[in-house]
Nucleic acid binder design. Sequence first.
DNA 1: GCCAACGTTGGC
DNA 2: GCCAACGTTGGC
Length: 168
Amino acid sequence: MTSPARFWLMKSEPDECSIDDALASPQATVAWTGVRNYQARNFMRDQMRPGDGVLFYHSSCAEPGIAGIARVASGTRADPTQFDPASPYHDPRSPEDSPRWLLLDVQALRKTRLMPLAELRQHPELAGMRLLQRGNRLSVMEVQPPEWQFILARLLGPEDALALGIGP
DNA sequence: GCCAACGTTGGC
DNA sequence: GCCAACGTTGGC
């Protein structure tokens, strides 16, 4: 029996929602709209729980990398953008009575220094990270506890990590 | 803007 | 159920 995953990485395009945008939102919490991949959706629906740790990753930008620390702040519910014809995330094939796409709330906890993708690749300890695997395109993915610890140790002081309550 | 890699679609 | 064509992701 494996213990449930407790750590995640979630990609956001900073043009749409940066760590600064998240921190500036009410309760520093944003609804994670726009996930349109079944595997990512299933992670949110089946495995992510309030309190899980999240690496807030900036993608599709000049400096891709980890930009902050967050936590899962709710369970899933229907993503309303799938039903909005004006939204780039509109999905006309999603039935209203059985929504195809879900979102959950993410609460930003800290903005960190940017830990760029190139730096992540330099650490042998992180070579197994899903993010770094060839051709990876998932926008929501698991982070192994040792990877989480290794990264947080480089982004936060130990007392800060404790204060966030998302140890270990 | 390019392009490799991947997921999805749809004809058969 | 196969698989080619297509669209998307995302780093560079």
